[in-house]
Amino acid sequence: MKYGIRSLTVLALLLIGGVYNRAAAQKLFFIFAHGQYASPVQTGFRNDYNFGVGADAGVGIGPGKTKVVGTVGYTVFNAKSKEVGNITYVPMKIGLRRYFFPANILFINADAGVAHIKDKTTDTDYSRFTADIGAGAKLGPMDLGIAYEGFSRGGSAGFASWIAFKVGWRFGL
């Protein structure tokens, strides 16, 4: 009887250790932070703004190759003239990130949410729908990415959009 209990205990410990190692290898949770350069593409937005610079950070959760991702960010768009003021863009988004290939090197992502915008041209603050779609590569702890991103400007102003080039760090836990 003593050997049976010891054997079951050892077997249980080995199973728990195997499940833990498999879960750790999958990296069920990760955090990331990126710096970004944004180049306006929508005509009306591109005519008023040279570029944007900022950062974003977030978390990803999920087993396997598909992760649910939450992101917050901060970007300032530099106005081309004094008649147009800078825009500050602060998004809060949720989305999905899907990894490809056995080593999970490449990924695509899509996010949507709400952004707080401070427009210094009209000295107004407002919240708008925002979304992005992008792709990237995970190179060790480094993330490289590109995304098409934007927000609804409201009324007849349409959608402000840009291409964001992102570089940052990713830490899997």
Rank of each mutant, 00 (worst) to 15 (best):
Y126V: 01
V10C: 03
Y3F: 13
L139V: 12
G158Y: 02
K80V: 03
T9R: 07
F159A: 10
F32P: 03
Y37A: 00
F32E: 14
I5P: 02
G17K: 13
A110L: 11
V167I: 11
G62D: 10
L13M: 11
G54I: 05
A157M: 04
Y74A: 14
S127A: 06
L106S: 03
T122N: 06
V76D: 08
K65D: 04
N21P: 01
S161H: 00
F77I: 03
L96C: 05
F100C: 12
D132Y: 06
K118F: 09
I133A: 08
I108P: 00
K93I: 00
L139C: 12
G145V: 01
G60Q: 01
L13K: 08
S152V: 09
A157W: 12
F29P: 03
F165N: 02
F171E: 11
A131R: 12
S39N: 09
V114N: 06
A115E: 14
N78V: 11
V68G: 04
K2S: 07
I5D: 01
G64T: 04
A164S: 13
F151H: 14
I61F: 15
T43L: 14
G35H: 07
G62W: 05
A33S: 09
A38R: 14
I117T: 10
Y37N: 04
L173M: 09
F29W: 05
W162Q: 04
F100E: 03
F129A: 06
P40A: 03
K67Q: 14
K138W: 10
V59C: 01
T75E: 11
G150W: 00
V59Q: 00
R98Q: 15
A25W: 09
R46Y: 10
F51W: 15
K2A: 08
L144W: 09
A157Q: 07
P102E: 09
M92P: 03
N47I: 01
G172A: 10
F101D: 14
A33C: 05
F101N: 14
